[in-house]
Measured scan of single mutants.
Amino acid sequence: QVATSTVRILGMTCQSCVKSIEDRISNLKGIISMKVSLEQGSATVKYVPSVVCLQQVCHQIGDMGFEASIAE
C-alpha cells in the first residue's frame, strides 16, 4: 500500500537545498518518490506507511537544518 502526503519545509533558499533534501529523503527505505517545491515551501512524498512514517521524514529534514512539518 502506497500513500501520498505533503510536508511543509521552512528554510529552503535555493535549488541546492531542494536537491539535498530530495537526495537524502529518496534514499530512505520505504520512500518511493519525493518532489520538493522551493516556491511552495513543501514536498510531496510518496511512501509505504508500513515501512516509513512521515515523522521520520520530517526528522531527517530537521537534521539537515530545515523546519519540516506534516501539512494538514
Score class of each variant (00 low, 15 high):
Q1D: 15
Q1I: 07
Q1K: 12
Q1A: 06
Q1S: 07
V2A: 06
V2N: 05
V2W: 15
V2S: 12
V2T: 15
V2C: 15
V2F: 10
V2Q: 07
V2P: 06
V2E: 15
V2R: 00
V2G: 05
A3M: 14
A3S: 13
A3P: 03
A3H: 12
A3K: 09
T4K: 06
T4E: 14
T4I: 13
T4W: 09
T4C: 15
T4Q: 08
T4A: 05
S5G: 15
S5V: 14
T6R: 12
T6H: 11
T6M: 13
T6A: 05
T6P: 04
T6G: 05
V7I: 15
V7L: 15
V7Y: 00
V7E: 04
V7P: 00
R8S: 09
R8E: 07
R8H: 10
R8Q: 10
R8F: 12
I9G: 02
I9P: 00
I9M: 00
I9Y: 00
I9N: 02
I9F: 04
L10M: 13
L10E: 10
L10I: 11
L10K: 14
G11Y: 05
G11V: 06
G11I: 07
G11P: 03
G11S: 00
M12T: 04
M12Y: 02
M12S: 03
M12D: 04
M12W: 05
T13Y: 15
T13Q: 07
T13L: 11
T13F: 15
T13C: 07
T13H: 14
C14N: 05
C14P: 01
Q15I: 11
Q15N: 11
Q15Y: 11
Q15H: 14
Q15A: 11
Q15L: 10
S16D: 14
S16R: 13
S16K: 14
S16L: 10
S16P: 04
C17R: 02
C17I: 06
C17S: 05
C17W: 05
C17D: 15
V18F: 03
V18I: 06
V18E: 05
K19H: 09
K19Y: 09
S20G: 05
S20H: 09
S20V: 10
S20A: 10
I21G: 03
I21Q: 00
I21F: 03
I21P: 02
E22A: 06
D23Y: 08
D23C: 07
D23E: 13
D23F: 09
D23Q: 13
D23H: 13
R24P: 02
R24G: 09
R24D: 03
R24V: 09
R24H: 11
R24T: 09
I25S: 01
I25W: 02
I25A: 01
I25Q: 00
S26D: 03
S26V: 09
S26A: 10
S26I: 10
S26F: 05
N27Q: 14
N27A: 12
N27C: 06
N27R: 13
N27Y: 07
L28I: 12
L28N: 02
L28H: 02
L28R: 02
L28A: 04
K29D: 14
K29H: 12
K29S: 11
K29M: 12
K29N: 12
G30I: 11
G30S: 04
G30T: 05
G30M: 09
G30H: 04
I31V: 13
I31M: 03
I31N: 00
I31Y: 00
I31G: 00
I32Y: 03
I32E: 02
I32M: 06
I32A: 00
I32C: 05
I32F: 04
I32L: 08
S33P: 00
S33A: 10
S33V: 05
S33Y: 09
S33G: 05
S33M: 08
M34T: 05
M34V: 15
K35F: 07
K35E: 08
V36C: 08
V36A: 04
V36M: 01
V36T: 02
V36Q: 00
S37W: 08
S37H: 12
S37L: 07
S37P: 01
L38R: 04
L38G: 00
L38H: 01
L38V: 04
L38M: 06
L38P: 04
L38D: 01
L38A: 01
E39Y: 08
E39L: 13
E39R: 08
Q40V: 07
Q40F: 13
Q40H: 14
G41N: 13
G41Y: 06
S42K: 12
S42N: 11
S42D: 09
S42T: 14
A43V: 06
A43N: 01
A43G: 14
A43S: 04
A43R: 02
T44E: 14
T44Q: 14
T44P: 00
T44N: 07
T44K: 12
V45N: 01
V45K: 01
V45W: 01
V45L: 11
V45I: 12
K46C: 15
K46G: 04
K46W: 15
K46F: 14
K46V: 15
K46H: 14
K46Y: 10
Y47D: 02
Y47F: 08
Y47R: 00
Y47M: 02
Y47W: 08
Y47S: 00
Y47H: 01
V48G: 02
V48F: 15
V48P: 00
V48A: 08
V48T: 08
P49Y: 06
P49G: 03
P49M: 06
P49L: 06
S50C: 05
S50F: 07
S50G: 13
S50K: 07
S50P: 03
S50H: 07
V51E: 15
V51P: 00
V51H: 04
V52K: 00
V52R: 00
V52W: 02
V52A: 04
V52H: 00
C53F: 06
C53G: 10
C53V: 08
C53Q: 10
C53I: 08
L54N: 01
L54E: 01
L54Y: 02
L54W: 06
L54P: 06
Q55W: 12
Q55M: 10
Q55I: 11
Q55S: 11
Q55L: 11
Q55K: 10
Q56F: 13
Q56K: 12
Q56Y: 15
Q56P: 01
Q56L: 10
Q56W: 14
Q56G: 04
V57S: 01
V57C: 04
V57P: 01
V57W: 04
V57M: 03
V57R: 03
V57E: 03
C58P: 04
C58K: 13
H59L: 14
H59A: 13
H59V: 14
H59F: 11
H59K: 14
H59D: 15
H59G: 12
H59S: 14
H59N: 14
Q60V: 15
Q60N: 09
Q60L: 15
Q60T: 14
Q60S: 11
I61C: 05
I61E: 04
I61W: 05
I61T: 04
G62N: 15
G62P: 03
G62K: 15
G62L: 13
G62C: 13
G62E: 14
G62Y: 13
D63P: 03
D63E: 14
D63M: 15
D63A: 14
M64W: 04
M64A: 05
M64H: 02
M64Y: 00
G65R: 01
G65N: 04
G65C: 05
F66I: 03
F66D: 02
F66K: 04
E67C: 07
E67N: 11
E67V: 14
E67L: 10
E67W: 09
E67A: 10
A68M: 06
A68N: 03
A68V: 13
A68Y: 05
A68L: 06
A68F: 06
S69H: 13
S69W: 13
S69V: 11
S69D: 06
I70V: 13
I70S: 06
A71R: 07
A71P: 13
A71E: 12
E72G: 10
